[in-house]
């Protein structure tokens, strides 16, 4: 019986970064709420289970089965329910991931409770966890608590810090026997996203280039940077007109409208027709050699410099940052 149960995820046999962040958050919350942190690992491999203790779990519920590596609602839901009922925590945390956003509402309903989705911040108030979450497309923040128990919460990746791994900590392992699930919806295949295949309008990050790039070759560099970020590449109309990049990638009034979390505008002046296509981005970052370029008025961060000098440095800094 623990206070908080984290329903974790693994990737390539290891705990995902988001799971470690959840464990970090759970430990901080239990510091106030008291009690233990448990981690449910469905379909886990040994390496992940071993890492759970150092990452902050006191107990690990392990449902090891190769068939469970792939998340499927009908398979994971009864198991998750079984583990929660066995552990009876007050709070259940999941990542706001493909799995978490699918599983949490159904699980909460099954448990007679409700889920607060996509938390950015968690605080304790009495026996409740106050959840600050983003809404209205990022224009507003909402603070909510779940009135019923257990309080199911999904948490946005990178919003929480993981613990420093503590090799001296180890978790008690409880094996859970998967019962026969009635698999109604089945995952029959899985395709990796083709990186060029990210539709501009759906991309979370967009790297865009303009006339200031000076030629089509530079778009190759942009594509490389986009590869590092998992981003789509966009372009201003001026650059498309010059034939440097396909018109399908034009962002703006008469192109595609995008609203990614991060819009990186490189050598784009920020004409209103261009901004009409990207002004809704959560964060705009501009690299432009002209300190008076209009784009800076819309940007959160900016670098005033020749992009040719900044781009290679940025790419390696990003590689380091994302790897670490």
């Amino acid at each position: 019986m623990s206070t908080i149960l984290v329903i974790g995820e693994t990737e390539a046999g290891a705990l995902t970064a988001a799971t470690c962040e959840l464990l970090g958050a759970a430990n901080r919350l239990t510091a106030e709420l008291g009690g233990d942190v448990a981690l449910a690992l469905i379909g886990a491999e040994p390496a992940a289970v071993e890492a759970a203790g150092p990452a902050g779990a006191d107990t690990v519920y392990r449902a090891a089965d190769a068939s469970l590596v792939q998340y499927q609602t009908d398979a994971h839901l009864p198991l998750a329910q079984q583990i929660v009922e066995q552990d009876s925590p007050r709070v259940v945390l999941l990542a706001q991931s493909s799995m978490g956003r699918d599983l949490a509402p159904r699980l909460a309903t099954r448990l007679g409770s409700a889920a607060a989705m996509d938390a950015l911040a968690l605080e304790v108030e009495g026996d409740r966890v106050r959840v600050t979450r983003s809404c209205y497309g990022g224009n507003a923040r909402q603070v909510v608590t779940v009135k019923t128990d257990p309080q199911v919460i999904t948490v946005r990746a990178k919003s929480q810090d993981p613990l420093e791994p503590d090799a001296s900590r180890s978790a008690e392992i409880v094996d859970v026997a998967p019962s026969d699930a009635d698999l109604r919806a089945r995952v029959t295949s899985k395709d990796a996203a083709e990186s060029e295949g990210v539709r501009l309008e759906d991309a979370e990050i967009v790297v865009s280039g303009g006339r200031g790039l000076g030629g089509p070759e530079a778009f190759g560099d942009l594509e490389q940077l986009a590869g590092v970020l998992g981003a789509a590449v966009g372009s201003s109309r001026a650059a498309c007109d010059l034939g440097w990049y396909p018109p399908s990638q034009q962002v703006g009034l008469t192109g595609t409208v995008v609203s990614p979390t991060l819009y990186l505008a490189i050598a784009i002046s920020g004409a209103s027709q261009h901004m009409a296509g990207c002004g809704g981005s959560k964060n705009i970052v501009a690299i432009n050699k002209d300190p008076d370029a209009a784009i800076f008025a819309f940007s959160r961060f900016g670098i005033v410099d020749d992009y040719k000098k900044v781009l290679p440095a940025l790419e390696s800094a990003l590689k380091d940052a994302l790897a670490g």
């Binding site: 409770s113 507003a140 923040r141 909402q142 603070v143 909510v144 608590t145």
Partner: peptide, 9 residues
């Protein structure tokens, strides 16, 4: 089942 405590920009 959810209770809102605040809404802000």
């Amino acid at each position: 089942r959810l209770e809102m405590h605040a809404l802000f920009q």
